[in-house]
Simulated scan of single mutants.
Amino acid sequence: MTSLKMKKLLQESLDHPNWIFTYEREKDSVRVEDKNSSKGITISLSGLIAKYEQNGQKAVEEYVYYVQETLTSMRKQITLNGQERHIFPVIRSTSFPIVNSDDVSLVYDDHTAETRVYYAIDLGSTYRLIDERMAAKEDLTNETIREMAMFNVRSLSTEMKEDRVAGNSYYFLNTKDGYDASRILNESFLQHMKQSVKGTMTISVPHQDVLIIGDIENKTGYDILAQMTMGFFVNGKVPITALSFLYEEGKLEPIFILGNIKVEKDTEENE
Rank of each mutant, 00 (worst) to 15 (best):
residue 97 P to C: 00
residue 155 S to R: 14
residue 166 A to N: 13
residue 185 L to I: 02
residue 161 K to H: 10
residue 123 L to E: 11
residue 93 S to T: 08
residue 151 F to C: 06
residue 187 E to I: 08
residue 133 R to C: 04
residue 110 D to N: 14
residue 138 E to D: 11
residue 91 I to D: 00
residue 120 A to Q: 06
residue 147 E to Q: 12
residue 119 Y to Q: 05
residue 146 R to N: 10
residue 162 E to A: 07
residue 111 H to Y: 15
residue 110 D to T: 12
residue 122 D to M: 11
residue 134 M to K: 01
residue 89 P to W: 07
residue 158 T to E: 09
residue 169 S to P: 00
residue 123 L to W: 02
residue 107 V to Q: 09
residue 94 T to V: 15
residue 92 R to S: 10
residue 113 A to T: 15
residue 93 S to I: 06
residue 165 V to Q: 10
residue 155 S to C: 10
residue 115 T to Q: 08
residue 103 D to N: 15
residue 151 F to G: 07
residue 87 I to P: 03
residue 102 D to G: 09
residue 156 L to R: 13
residue 97 P to N: 00
residue 160 M to K: 11
residue 91 I to G: 00
residue 143 E to G: 03
residue 132 E to M: 07
residue 93 S to Q: 01
residue 159 E to Y: 13
residue 130 I to R: 01
residue 112 T to E: 05
residue 186 N to V: 05
residue 162 E to F: 02
residue 97 P to G: 00
residue 186 N to R: 06
residue 129 L to M: 13
residue 158 T to M: 06
residue 106 L to N: 02
residue 164 R to T: 10
residue 140 L to N: 06
residue 171 Y to W: 12
residue 181 A to C: 11
residue 110 D to F: 12
residue 179 Y to E: 01
residue 99 V to Y: 12
residue 104 V to K: 12
residue 98 I to W: 06
residue 148 M to K: 11
residue 94 T to P: 01
residue 183 R to I: 00
residue 101 S to L: 13
residue 93 S to L: 07
residue 88 F to M: 12
residue 141 T to Y: 07
residue 152 N to W: 04
residue 159 E to H: 13
residue 105 S to T: 13
residue 151 F to E: 15
residue 188 S to G: 08
residue 174 N to E: 10
residue 137 K to I: 09
residue 129 L to A: 03
residue 164 R to S: 08
residue 115 T to W: 02
residue 95 S to Y: 11
residue 131 D to S: 02
residue 94 T to D: 10
residue 89 P to C: 08
residue 175 T to P: 06
residue 148 M to G: 05
residue 148 M to Q: 11
residue 170 Y to E: 01
residue 182 S to Q: 00
residue 118 Y to G: 05
residue 105 S to I: 05
residue 183 R to D: 00
residue 122 D to Q: 06
residue 89 P to D: 02
residue 149 A to E: 04
residue 149 A to Q: 03
residue 158 T to R: 14
residue 112 T to R: 03
residue 91 I to H: 02
residue 177 D to I: 04
residue 158 T to Y: 04
residue 123 L to A: 08
residue 172 F to K: 04
residue 117 V to H: 01
residue 176 K to G: 00
residue 136 A to R: 12
residue 91 I to Y: 02
residue 147 E to T: 11
residue 170 Y to M: 08
residue 103 D to Q: 13
residue 131 D to Q: 02
residue 95 S to N: 07
residue 159 E to M: 13
residue 172 F to N: 09
residue 107 V to A: 14
residue 152 N to G: 06
residue 98 I to G: 12
residue 145 I to K: 01
residue 140 L to F: 09
residue 156 L to N: 00
residue 103 D to C: 07
residue 153 V to F: 01
residue 170 Y to V: 04
residue 154 R to S: 14
residue 173 L to A: 02
residue 155 S to F: 05
residue 170 Y to F: 15
residue 167 G to D: 09
residue 141 T to R: 08
residue 107 V to T: 08
residue 181 A to H: 05
residue 159 E to V: 13
residue 92 R to F: 07
residue 166 A to K: 15
residue 131 D to R: 03
residue 89 P to G: 09
residue 172 F to C: 08
